[in-house]
Computed example of a mutant assay.
Amino acid sequence: MRFGEEHQELRTAVRSLLARHEGAAAWGPLTRQIGAAGLAVPEEHGGAGCGPVEVHVVMEELGRALAPVPYLGSAVLATQALLAAGDTGLLPALAEGRTTGALAWAENGSWRPEAVRARAVCGADGWRVTGVKDHVLDGADADVLLVAARTETGLALFHVPSGAAGVEREAHTTMDLTRPQATLRFDGTEARAVGADGDRVLAHVRDLACTALAAEQVGAAERCLELTVAHVRDRVQFGRPIGSFQAVKHRLADAFVRVESARSAALGASWAAADGSPDLSRYAAVAKSACSEAFSAVAGDMIQLHGGIGITWEHDAHRYFKRAHGSAQLFGSPAGHRDRIAEVVVGPRGAGAERPA
């Protein structure tokens, strides 16, 4: 698994752009100059026709910068949901960055398709959706709302028009201020069906979401390690840099192993997604679990090895720490994804096979 020259050029371009445009201001240049929003959209629908490996590169760089842009929610979740559902009419605007999308999916803190309880009923005037969705990425401001809801025949995906009556959006102040989330409430809201096989669509989107998020976690963890190494080289105590002490060297060596192990897991998932591997769910679960725990550990080391400054607002350490713990729970906890791996290896609960502790 190696990146090609074009991947390195993409990485350089994204990193350079994020250095020039900080915060949310980076979204416009990312979409106009690099075409990031449409990277994984087929060319016939206005995109670049790339795939999960290119998305991996972008997500790593966004993670390094903790860029508060709607890439994960719009360019990954919403776009991949539409592609998986086979509804392409909304893709050109999303690919150009003229609109942003949000997938209203999780309920009661769960991203499992079977946890969806929102209902959709088809009447004389079309579909109407009722239910509550939480942890909707960029849900307060997204132009395109895609909602997972149950019908009489099963789980389906619906497009709720922007400004439709019966939609209440509640933005939340999250621990990680760089990743906006919202609760969305629908009360008999007008909707259009965009895909009937909701279980398949959401399962596939979850795998791609975990794969992309794992890449972001690797990029952020790598940046934590870089900042920590730079600090221990410069910070002097007892007449010598603290990085020269054996205990600090051991901590940094362990952190390096965690980052590189996480990188391998994330790359494995990205290449499995690019190859259309039937084992993508297993690779994605491994990547999400391993990368979540690695990022949390390295961010914690960053706080401790920086000492007092690591817990101040003046230093970025707390921002990485908050992103680490927020992203660890996004799309399911590390333990939850290990349960998914166990289901693949030994079978689901109740199947008669013993589950590992």
Rank of each mutant, 00 (worst) to 15 (best):
L157M: 11
H159L: 10
S162Y: 12
G163F: 05
G163E: 09
A164R: 10
A164S: 14
A165E: 15
A165S: 15
G166T: 01
G166I: 00
V167W: 02
V167G: 04
V167A: 06
E168M: 05
R169W: 08
R169G: 05
R169E: 09
R169P: 08
A171V: 05
A171R: 07
A171Y: 04
H172L: 01
H172D: 01
T173M: 08
M175I: 01
M175A: 04
M175N: 03
M175T: 02
T178C: 03
T178G: 03
T178E: 04
R179W: 00
R179K: 11
P180F: 02
P180Y: 00
P180Q: 06
Q181K: 12
Q181I: 07
Q181R: 14
Q181V: 01
A182H: 05
A182G: 00
T183E: 15
T183Q: 15
T183P: 07
L184N: 05
R185Y: 13
R185H: 13
R185Q: 12
F186I: 10
D187K: 14
D187S: 15
G188D: 13
G188Q: 13
G188K: 12
G188M: 14
T189A: 15
E190R: 13
E190S: 10
E190P: 02
A191F: 04
R192L: 12
A193K: 14
A193P: 13
G195W: 06
G195F: 04
A196G: 10
D197Y: 12
D197S: 13
G198I: 02
G198T: 02
D199C: 10
L202P: 08
A203R: 15
H204A: 15
H204P: 11
H204M: 14
V205I: 08
V205D: 11
V205E: 10
R206T: 13
D207Q: 14
D207G: 12
D207W: 14
L208C: 11
A209W: 00
A209R: 01
A209Q: 03
C210Q: 07
C210S: 00
C210F: 01
T211W: 00
A212E: 07
A212L: 03
A212K: 10
L213E: 11
L213Y: 04
L213K: 05
A215M: 00
A215I: 01
A215Q: 03
E216N: 02
E216T: 00
Q217A: 08
V218S: 01
G219P: 09
G219D: 07
G219R: 04
E222C: 03
R223I: 02
R223Q: 14
C224L: 03
C224A: 04
C224Q: 00
C224W: 04
L225W: 00
L225D: 07
L225E: 06
E226S: 12
L227F: 12
T228W: 01
T228I: 08
T228S: 06
T228Y: 03
V229K: 15
A230F: 08
H231E: 14
V232E: 12
V232I: 11
R233A: 08
R233W: 05
R233F: 05
D234Y: 10
D234E: 15
D234N: 14
D234A: 15
R235A: 15
R235Y: 15
R235T: 15
V236A: 07
V236D: 07
V236Q: 05
Q237P: 06
Q237G: 05
F238V: 12
G239C: 06
R240D: 07
R240V: 10
R240Y: 06
R240N: 06
P241E: 13
P241I: 07
P241M: 08
I242H: 07
S244V: 09
S244M: 12
F245D: 08
F245H: 09
A247F: 06
